[in-house]
Nucleic acid binder design. Structure first.
Lengths: 351, 351
DNA sequence: CTGTTAGCGCTTTCAA
DNA sequence: TTGAAAGCGCTAACAG
């Protein structure tokens, strides 16, 4: 591959001049610039950014770590990040942690070896051991979605407690009194916050929160949703509604209900956080509280860019409001037949 | 940040020895190795891969270019790629082209500047101008999904013509005789192949293919599906079924039908290529031909790894078979009422 | 086994 | 305006 030496020789100038032309440095005579540009083009020269990164100490690369790109919430988040990064001339490199702390650690390692300029992280756990090592090195980090116990760093997420409160309130309004929570681990901030909202809604309505109706699982995925719901159905006190703390848990719950020959919403109402997926535009089913994930991604990049310019500004926390969508997975309690007599939400509300 | 010089000084050895320890080179005395390792750990040393890439001429990075990460087909593809890449110690960097050739070009440019070891590309168009420049530089490329006119390079995709033929055949068996095709641009191989299958199925059944029932749009997205279906409904000869050449086109088509107060499948059957999305596990709707996208991604990385080891082996083409799922968007033609009397596919077939 | 040395391809003083 | 020279942090002969 051609280097700036080759170009310099052909153009009869020094490599410094070639470098200046490539980087649009002003101190190059127009005539010289044209000659060099010409040769650059003829040669199809492509600069080696590894070399320039080495001396510039900046890579124009940003790393993203998310639990699983396959979950629509994270996909959209990543898309938001990529769009904004591209706009700013940054490349993005990413990893799926699968809620696995040691996978997270190993990705962090490669990202640091690559000397990425900054990281956007949806952390696996709050035990911030993994994160502290980056922060100590003063590599800019923006946390998204999940908060990590009061580290003084930038954060973008949404109002989980308020969102949870509102959606549980909706269930209460429909007449539900036994509402189960099917959730991810309380070690993860968003699930703790959603629990909080779940409790608040009930307390405000003068209901007592029954700990027997709260089900935790480690990983917030389909499998967990399925397993917890199975367990929930064994409960002597069977709830009339389930609040699934995320979309995948809801899908798992739905499968368990289906297997038990329980119909949603006739026999059980189900609501969840996050859109079950893109297809929500076509075939929306779950009444849910949807986070502005694309925006969260964009905001995260913006905070990162800001911090890159000013390493020492105070950490910013951005909390966005999730949006409520009423769909077909919920019904009034104690009706003869399913959702039919319930005013259905506009299934195209999300379009 | 610490460099190998710092480590060397502290350990009282040369930088070469430090380098050897880091890279597990055998020619280091066990005692020395331990001492260096100790210091490496104490210092929290993280090697700079930009520097080593510069001399090794390899970055352990692989670039992926896809139309839109937000489409479930590509998400899963990317997940397959990431999994396999990670397994091989490679990082992945990616870009969304949004079917935009100049965006593709610009990504290609940054990927090359970063000296990625190889590229996995779902090309925007077949005009291979963008691609030829990489191939000329002998950077390994694996094409996925869409073929590019007979470039002699590795390829992984699925059997589009056969898949299309089978699914259209299914419609014919249901009694449909006027079947419309709503598709992406014929400049893209997969759409040409699906057209081919669409024709073959009809010809084999002794039907004549009516060109008036074939609708092309440029970008295979929801908007196009919507627009083409609107147009299709103006047609004096209204079809009884639509074959949408991908999932997003199908969603767009569905919206247009809904607006026209046509029910699926009562008034119009709809089938498509690709799963409408992840949620297909929960709420499968479209009868569709689903590609093994995760596997396609994994295979692509495998081909790339193989080529990295042996630059000159003959190009391999891998064609995987898509899988048919019968769901609720199809019905026999000329029935009094919708899908009710039709034997429905098991909606959980995909689980 | 260990160290010296010469780069990898580029940017950035500094002096001209 | 231009160029010479000194690295950025690391690897890879080569000699010992």
């Amino acid at each position: 591959m051609a280097t700036i030496y080759d170009i310099a020789k052909k153009a009869g100038v020094s490599i410094t001049t070639v470098s200046r032309v490539i980087n649009n440095h002003p101190y190059v005579q127009e005539e010289t610039r044209q000659r060099v540009k010409q040769i650059l083009a003829e040669t199809n020269f492509i600069p080696n950014s590894n070399a320039s990164s080495l001396v510039r100490k900046t890579t124009n690369t940003l790393a993203v770590m998310i639990p699983d790109i396959t979950n629509n919430f994270f996909t959209t988040l990543l898309r938001g990040i990529e769009d904004k990064a591209n706009e700013n001339g940054f490349a993005v490199i990413f990893g799926n942690t699968d809620e696995n702390s040691s996978k997270e650690y190993s990705y962090l390692q490669t990202f640091m070896e690559r000397r990425v300029d900054g990281l956007i992280i949806d952390a696996v756990l709050e035990e911030s051991k993994n994160l502290k090592s980056i922060i100590k090195r003063e590599i800019p980090v923006v946390l998204i979605d999940r908060q990590v116990n009061d580290l003084p760093i930038d954060y973008v997420g949404s109002n989980n407690s308020k969102g949870a409160e509102d959606i549980v309130h909706y269930l209460i309004e429909l007449g539900h009194r036994q509402i189960a929570l099917v959730s991810g681990a309380p070690e993860i901030s968003v699930y703790r916050q959603r629990l909080e909202g779940y409790k608040t809604a009930q307390q405000k309505a003068g209901l007592t929160v029954d700990p027997k109706l709260i089900f935790w699982g480690e990983k917030p995925n389909q499998e967990t949703g399925y397993r917890l719901t199975k367990k929930l159905l064994q409960n002597p006190l069977r709830p009339t509604a389930i609040f699934a703390a995320n979309n995948f848990l809801a899908i798992g719950a739905f499968r368990a209900l289906h297997e038990a020959h329980l119909e949603v919403p006739k026999d059980m109402s189900v609501v969840c956080f996050d859109a079950a997926d893109t297809d929500a535009t076509l075939n929306p089913f779950f009444t849910s509280m949807v986070q502005p994930s694309h925006t969260i991604g964009e905001m995260a990049v913006e905070l990162l860019m800001r911090r890159l310019k000013n390493k020492k500004s105070a950490p910013t926390k951005v909390i966005l409001e999730p949006q409520f969508f009423r769909r077909e997975s919920t019904a009034k309690v104690e009706m003869e037949r399913g959702g039919e007599s319930v005013e259905k939400g506009n299934p195209y509300a999300g379009l």
